[in-house]
């Protein structure tokens, strides 16, 4: 490693692209591979695996140990509803290295001063979502309590690859929501993607505590394999 490599790492992190550092385990030489170079690389299989699984891979290849250290852009959190819970959630999400965007068409809520460190989009979810790529490293949370706002955001999310969808509201509210979505043509399996009532059941009371339970659920979705999440939820329910 040298100073130039560190500069290159930071430059590419700021560009928010995925890249990989490759070195032989015991040799002082590290290269940064990105974009088109990945496909052409002799170890492209391992580079892609490291990037896709977002974890460092140590692999023995032809008797030599190689390190594949991936760097991915931060996971994204889209919060629809610039409410009190959103203020706490944006702070803890950012601390967990998420890039946070807040959407609310209501100007009184979507005041930049309420979210000094985050991108705030004062628009309806339909319009706001046009400029957001809901990819598999994106979580969407709806907090408005207004079906006409939340539903638009949830429909956009269900039609995307985002890894987490959560909707604030009681069991009763969630049941009504599911009924509306079934009427709109969504099937039960798809609707299971919506976590509602939102958050892990830690009996959160204040906006700050609710934000923690939501963040814990988002992290569990990001870090667990799909099957484990179901298991986790069952275990929580049966405590």
């Amino acid at each position: 490693m040298d100073k130039a490599l560190l500069e290159k790492i930071i430059k590419n992190k700021n560009k928010k692209i995925s890249f990989c550092l490759i070195s032989q385990a015991d040799i002082n030489e590290t290269v940064l591979v990105k974009n088109k170079e990945i496909d052409k690389h002799q170890f492209s299989e391992f580079i892609k695996k490291a990037i896709n699984e977002d974890r460092l891979i140590l692999e023995e290849i032809n008797g030599k140990e190689w390190i594949f250290n991936p760097f991915n852009p931060p996971a994204k959190l889209i919060i629809v509803g610039a409410v009190h819970v959103a203020q706490s959630l944006s702070i803890i999400a950012e601390n967990a290295d998420f890039e946070v965007t807040i959407i609310d068409p209501r100007e009184a809520f979507a005041a930049q001063e309420r979210f000094p460190n985050n991108k705030v989009i004062c628009a309806w979810p339909d319009d706001a979502f046009k400029e957001i790529d809901l990819d598999n490293r994106t979580a969407v949370v709806t907090l408005t309590h207004e079906p006409n706002l939340d539903d638009i955001a949830l429909k956009n999310s269900l039609n995307s690859n985002c890894f987490y969808i959560g909707a604030l509201g009681s069991k009763k509210t969630h049941k009504k929501r599911i009924d509306r979505f079934i009427e709109a043509g969504f099937n039960n399996k798809t609707l299971k993607r919506i976590n509602g009532p939102i958050g892990l059941p830690i009996n959160a009371q204040t906006p700050q505590e609710i934000a923690i339970s939501i963040m814990a659920e988002i992290i569990s979705s990001l870090r667990f394999q799909k099957e484990s999440i179901e298991e986790l939820r069952e275990n929580w329910k049966n405590r």
Binding site: M1, D2, K3, L6, A25, T30, L58
Partner: peptide, 12 residues
């Protein structure tokens, strides 16, 4: 755990 240490010179 296995850890690798890389050293980097300020003048390098």
């Amino acid at each position: 755990i296995k850890i690798r240490i890389d050293t980097i010179k300020s003048n390098g």
